[in-house]
Design a protein around this nucleic acid. Structure first.
Lengths: 578, 578
DNA sequence: ATGTCGGCGCGTCGCCGACAA
DNA sequence: TTGTCGGCGACGCGCCGACAT
């Protein structure tokens, strides 16, 4: 006759030991430390809300926002034991943006320290480990370095092991050293653990010896997804952060509970519904755009795009003059999350994601790449520039024919198929070059409203038009004069002044990269608005060139487009043969 | 390397067979049919959000709102199999309120039909039934009338039974007739069912033979609550509806999933967090108050207060002139939900719930009662008037000393302990009567904003001040003049004009209830604002009497409070000895 | 060094009639 | 009529070394 509601109204957020957290998160997970400066990429944040985040409806949201990390909470899901972090971010105003970042205190394992500091061990469960009624084969290394010392005098050597999980719950295992040949096994207690945690073969278990000597145990679920589609990225060496659809505590109506509790096959938590996640992204992004502090949740699953990235990593990446043909390596977790592998690849082009025409200027997934081992990374076509590490600082846009000196060990790199199609900018008769400039010179038009984000970031790119990767170059130029060279990197006037001779600002240097020695003569700001290839008719690629009026009276020379006098704002159409 | 999110973003709402729904919901559950007129009680809606619904913050929300039932969806929780209903309600405007309700088509079993129509059978699981590894003792009646015909020629008679649960999932049981003496048992398949459904002893199982001949199986969880506190009510014969913290589909952020999935002991779903439920109640109530259609979810658990009640039931209840001492019966489900029992009781007083000083005029839980068998209903102290059925239409406020002619069958009624303390209104020296009127006559004060709900409903009550139940009478009067008689029912001028002589409107009738024959002389509107007993000092009860100004110049006689001239608005204080 | 297999013992699930309420 | 108990058979969990990789 009584109905008492036991309500865990506000499940306490019990923070984990950061060491255990990182052990469970895996080597790829890096969290920018408190007080560090980061870029928050709404685009990345929304990427996993099944693409349902329609940023078009929120034109005020910029693609990336400079923030300071206010606080980090290391947490674990109460049902799945999955670790995640809640990161509170404080957008920085313009005057705060220049304050130097404190690079010290970077949390996470330094690469060099990684091996030495290994007081944890992860093992992916085999079929035998996960088998109902089976035991767990303890790798010798784990037993000897992580587990308490075993008395080998006994026959058989056996002990009871106590291990705390991420919630502080203690699990008891019988650790025995037996069999022929001898090996370490967990027997009694193991099966219960497997069942309770709903572990299956492929999931990983993490043992960690905490600094106080306690043994801890965490789990890392295997990615259960089947089928393709999603891109993969990684956070190694960047402080990159993965997806989350959740906002912080005070956000209306977005409970973090729910899901889970299913059969053993459903290990992963179904996080809310996609709609709610999309709303959360929008809300976070809106707060960020308004300079309000906000909170994001980071699930350090491989495959989640990091959307909070150290400012220094982004800036460093943007300082690179990316060119097609550049060779790089990029870190990935192996399928079983047990190791990190470096994969080699070649930049095929710089491109703007079709789906994000909304942000034509975002560096997000700027690099279109071709992998040396394309089979393993079929779905990884575009990557974030701060995730790759160049293996040569020398760009070789015209040298892609030659075999890379950084061939992968196992097989020859499969080179991008574009070499023969690289247009020579010197040749006006290139098939990629239109006969002349089309369009009205004096057309009046409204320049699209420029977003108030940091355009200094845009001094990055390069692009190369090829047939297989018909790139439409895009650059929204604010104050920085920018030069457009089809088939060449897009460079700022400042950059070009050191390597090219320029009409308006003649420079004695004739360029040190003679393979790209096309002198481009331009001044003022140009905005290229793209027509995606799909929009072209009869095999033509089209793009518009908008020229701002600040250099009225000058002659603007755009390679491939010809020259024209800048009278007022003008639009020039360029059609590219496909 | 792939992260696909399988999101059941919008779990389909598969409607149940209403017959099965009602079988699972139990005999107490009644749903007002579509198109019927009902009152929505926000107060009842909020009652189970752990009292966390602070309606004080929403002064515009009236305690009850007349609505029309727009639609009903019969649903079952996907995890717990608990049945619930989503009811869409459309608040009625004043001009719609008078449209006659269609009383036909009342869904649910009529009392007379109940026994005949029994094509379902419910049994509460015994320890043996729920025991791990045990079978299920099928009551003979169930086996013979609900189950498919068994061939008794076989030795032993045995068959396979297929039964669909609320989700349409088919369960297979071995039905055997064996043992000495012979009995019906479910063996193979039963244990699995018990485990999958996480049934424990005390839960009920419902077998139903659908009209198409299919056998269906539903479950009814036992109330797991321990400890007391909550009140119990029931919906029998009223079309009353139970609690829900959920709003409908389009409401922001209130997922219905989550919880569950725990150990076998945790059968019941933890519905969201209390905060979210409270928000949902507020949102529903706000929509209702604004005349917007809204949706509520009804969980037909016994112990959940019904907050959507047929208009006719409420009106009928309000037509009753409730008096202390009235004898009534009220239906309850038995502990195991298997039967319905009628309990006898006596109205001890009419009172306003302390916790709802916000709505001093709501009929919600109007009746304070004393049970003949108080042990079984310890926590049921206040009930809704439409839930009780008078066993005598004759009130006997001064006759409570005599033994009720409606003594319960088993034992003598334990009568309310108040008789000796009933004050005689004729005696001004009654201990409940203060020496005189205290307080400033001409105090200026702001009348509280009167709520715009239907005050016609308020022509109900009666109250009696007793020592054990120190009631503070409350009445917010709008346009209807109301008379206050301590120790007597609160009546409107209209009612009183037929039974009492009144100064301002003399009436020849001297009252037909001579035991209550105190003539009260008053006019105008009076608002009594209560001080809860707790607020009184040195054993006194205090209340304020606010008098509106419309009868300026008249003399107002309030029994127990004396007489005073109404000059403007005035406040009078009344102290009652405890 | 460790994944997987077959052997096998024991615990417990689950079916049974006996018995009693 | 049906709730509970003890008996007991059988299944499968879980511990084992053998063997292969």
């Amino acid at each position: 006759m009584i109905n008492v509601m036991h309500s865990l109204s506000k499940p306490m957020e019990k923070c984990l030991d950061p060491q255990l957290w990182h052990a469970c998160a895996g080597g790829m997970a890096q969290i920018p430390p408190p007080n560090s400066k980061v870029y928050y990429f709404c685009q990345g944040h929304g990427e996993h809300a099944n693409g349902n985040v329609d940023f078009m409806k929120f034109p005020r949201i910029p693609p990336l926002i400079l923030c300071r990390v206010a606080s980090i909470k290391y947490l674990a899901d109460s049902e799945s034991d999955e670790v995640y972090a809640k990161i509170r971010l404080m957008p920085l105003r313009g005057d705060e943006a220049d304050v130097c970042d404190d690079e010290s205190g970077f949390v996470g394992l330094d690469k060099s320290e990684e091996r030495e500091k290994t007081n944890s061990f992860a093992k992916t469960l085999t079929q035998s480990d996960a088998n109902n009624g089976g035991g767990f084969s303890v790798p010798r290394y784990c037993a000897e370095t992580i587990f308490p010392r075993l008395d080998y005098c006994a026959e058989p050597p056996v002990q009871t092991i106590l291990a705390k999980d991420v919630h502080g719950v203690v699990w008891k295992f019988r650790h025995i050293y037996r069999g022929t040949p001898r090996r370490h096994l967990l027997t009694t207690g193991w099966s219960n653990f497997v069942n309770q945690k709903k572990l299956v073969a492929g999931d990983s278990i993490v043992f960690l010896r905490a600094e106080n000597g306690d043994l801890c145990v965490g789990i890392r679920r295997a990615k259960r997804g089947i089928g393709g589609g999603a891109e993969v990225s990684c956070g190694w060496n960047t402080g990159g952060l993965g997806f989350s659809g959740f906002l912080g505590e005070n956000v209306v109506g977005l409970g973090i509970g729910g899901g889970g509790g299913g059969r053993r096959e459903l290990g992963l938590k179904e996080r809310g519904n996609v709609k709610a996640e999309a709303e959360a992204v929008i809300e976070a992004a809106s707060l960020a755009a308004n300079g309000q502090p906000f909170e994001v949740v980071y699930y350090p699953r491989a495959g989640s795009p990091e959307f909070v990235v150290r400012e220094s990593a982004v800036k460093a990446a943007m300082r690179v003059q990316w060119c097609s043909g550049m060779r790089f390596k990029m870190a990935f977790e192996t399928e079983d999350s047990s190791r990190i592998s470096w994969f080699m690849g070649t930049i095929s082009s710089l491109q703007v994601d079709h789906s994000n025409i909304h942000w034509p200027n975002s560096p997000w997934r700027l690099l279109q790449v071709v992998w040396d081992e394309p089979d393993l990374l079929q779905n990884v076509k575009r990557v974030n520039p701060w995730l790759v590490e160049l293996v040569s600082t020398m760009a070789m846009p015209a040298a892609v024919h030659q075999v890379s000196p950084f061939s992968p060990p196992r097989k020859r790199p499969r080179l991008p198929q574009m070499p023969t199609l690289v247009s020579n900018p010197l040749s006006p008769s290139s098939p990629l070059c239109p006969a002349g400039v089309q369009g009205a010179r004096h057309a009046h038009f409204q320049l699209p409203q420029l977003q108030p984000f940091d355009f200094k970031l845009l001094d990055y790119g390069s692009t190369l038009l090829t047939q297989t990767t018909p790139t439409y170059a895009a650059a929204a130029l604010s104050k920085t004069p920018m030069f457009l060279l089809f088939g060449q990197p897009i460079l700022t006037a400042d950059q070009i002044s050191h390597t090219h001779s320029i009409d308006t600002e003649p420079n004695s240097s004739d360029g040190n990269q003679d393979n790209t020695a096309n002198t481009s003569n331009a001044s003022g700001s140009a905005l290229i608005q793209n027509f995606p290839p799909e929009a072209s008719s009869d095999g033509e690629l089209q793009c518009k060139v908008f020229v701002e009026s600040e250099d009225v009276g000058r002659t603007l020379h755009l390679p491939m487009l010809g020259s024209f006098d800048v009278e007022q704002r003008a639009v020039h159409r360029c059609s590219l043969q496909r």
